[in-house]
């Protein structure tokens, strides 16, 4: 490595460190203010709780296994619903984008479902699938599937015509065009779809569990709120946010990795 490159990397490192400190500082300031306001009884700690209280409660919930139980329950519901959305949504989106007649037949139906607030269907799902896993999975599936459908549809409709022409000129049949041109060029769209679907799915989990049921993070938050355990509510919120950030970051990282063909290879 040349000395120029070393200097450049050192500068980049300092810049990154600075922005990390900046964003971390905002958090620290926020929590410090909160703690101070609660301790000084400027607000009623019964309603506001405080960071230290939330930490203590969190530690307790981890130790007695309550948190793990709820996380696992939510996780099971989420993964089932999200998995089904991926398995069903991708082929539906691909078919909508690839086959014109399929698009004409089903596009209006998809639009109708897409714009409908899914939570409005929850009472129906409870009647149809019961208060257990069924209704929750149905809600998550319906929340997560549309970003996948729409993104895959757009991906198929945006395939570069020149790439298609190359494939055709070299004798590709429909399947080969799909597998060698359409599929690889749809990967960035797929990852965007997955990220959006994940966010929607997470919302779906919490909404479904708040609505009814006896376990899961949403239930924990709902029950704690109803019984004025503000610290438990905050623990739930923090856990959900953390899980969301971790999943989103890992998908963002995956997108960058998949797009590596855009980066010069040396």
């Amino acid at each position: 490595m040349s000395s120029d490159a070393r200097r450049f990397r050192a500068r980049k490192f300092r810049e990154n460190l600075f922005s990390l400190g900046l964003s971390g500082g905002v958090f620290v300031l926020l929590f410090a203010t909160w703690e101070f306001v609660a301790r000084a009884h400027l607000v009623d700690p019964m309603f506001s709780s405080s960071p230290s209280q939330v930490l203590l409660t969190g530690w307790e919930l981890i130790n007695n296994g309550t948190l793990l139980k709820h996380v696992l329950a939510s996780g099971k519901v989420f993964l089932t619903g999200f998995g089904l959305a991926v398995i069903l949504g991708i082929p539906i989106g691909v078919a909508l984008g690839w086959f014109k007649w399929f698009n004409r037949a089903f596009s209006p139906l998809v639009s109708a479902f897409y714009t409908m607030p899914r939570i409005a269907l929850m009472p129906l799902f409870i009647i149809w699938f019961g208060l257990g896993m069924g209704s929750k999975v149905a809600l998550i599936l319906l929340s997560a599937i549309f970003p996948l459908i729409v993104n895959m549809q757009v991906a198929m409709q945006n395939i570069d015509a020149d790439y298609k022409r190359v494939g055709i000129a070299y004798g590709a049949n429909q399947w080969q065009l799909f597998s060698t041109v359409a599929l690889p060029s749809s990967i960035p769209f797929l990852l965007t779809g997955l990220r959006l679907a994940m966010g929607r799915g997470l919302l779906g989990v919490v909404a479904a569990e708040v609505f009814g049921g006896a376990e899961g993070l949403g239930y924990m938050i709902q029950y704690a709120g109803a019984t004025f355990q503000i610290d438990v509510v905050f623990v739930g919120v923090v856990v959900i946010a953390t899980i969301g950030v971790i999943m989103d970051r890992s998908l963002a990282y995956a997108s960058r990795r998949v797009d590596s063909w855009k980066i010069t290879e040396t």
């Binding site: 020149d162 790439y163 022409r165 190359v166 494939g167 055709i168 000129a169 004798g171 060698t180 063909w261």
Partner: peptide, 30 residues
Amino acid sequence: PGPDRSVVFQKATLLPWRTVMDNIIYGLEL
């Protein structure tokens, strides 16, 4: 289109997710 003819396009239109080698063998692969 048929294997008896090949086209060199004005725009290179190489598949960006394939390496040089894999672009070259694209026709054979098909």
